[in-house]
């Protein structure tokens, strides 16, 4: 996979934005700013998906993550008192240092493995970016999803149904306990 200079610049820019967003999630003083950092991260990743010619997933990322999940987080934050700063925010001292060290070690391992990759292992498929541009990403992904992976697809819809029922049950339990 080679990238043109413009693409390279955009990849690096969006990568930097994504990392900045993720960092502000864990560093922000107030949880609402954490949610905003998450939003920035999601939008940068969506742009990246689109550049990797996964248009539909990029837009789905915007609709599902940026449009719905972050909004749900903000809703929950407002419901449990959005104005108060997140006082009880984080661990300090030894435990935090230990946690960070663990993560740094993990990151170093992954980086080492990625650098050792020799690249071209594994058979290549036929869905090149040109094919996607010609036939359309939605059409190709839809065909794959509904012809090859129909069972996981149906299971995902069952999962979403369970999610809906669960959310309704939680809300009902709350309403009943208030009435008592």
């Amino acid at each position: 996979m080679t990238a043109t200079p413009l693409e390279t610049v955009l990849f690096i820019a969006f990568g930097a934005v994504a990392i900045a967003g993720a960092l502000s999630v864990i560093l922000a003083r107030h949880a609402v700013y954490s949610a905003l950092g998450m939003l920035v991260n999601f939008v940068a990743l969506a742009a990246m998906y689109i550049m990797l010619s996964a248009e539909f997933l990029g837009i789905a990322q915007l609709i599902v993550y940026a449009g719905a999940i972050v909004v749900l987080f903000l809703f929950a934050l407002m419901l449990i008192g959005g104005r108060r700063p997140a006082e009880q925010g984080r661990l300090t001292g030894g435990l935090a240092a230990a946690g960070s060290a663990l993560v740094v070690v993990f990151l170093a391992e992954i980086a080492y493995l990625v650098m050792r990759l020799t690249g071209t292992a594994g058979a290549k498929g036929t869905v090149t970016p040109d094919v996607i541009a010609q036939l359309g990403h939605i059409q190709l992904l839809g065909a794959t999803l509904l012809l090859e992976y129909i069972l996981p697809f149906e299971l995902a819809s069952v999962l979403l149904l369970v999610g809906i029922v669960g959310a309704v049950m939680l809300a009902r339990a709350r309403r009943q306990s208030r009435q008592e």
Binding site: I26, A31, R90, S100, L117
Partner: peptide, 26 residues
């Protein structure tokens, strides 16, 4: 090349998330 850059980027994001889970208490 691009694939390495993307894999490292994703590892960095994953690590930031993991660090958050370990450090934050909210």
């Amino acid at each position: 090349d691009a694939i390495r850059y993307l894999l490292i980027l994703s590892a960095v994001l994953f690590s930031i998330g993991a660090a958050g889970v370990l450090i934050r208490r909210n």
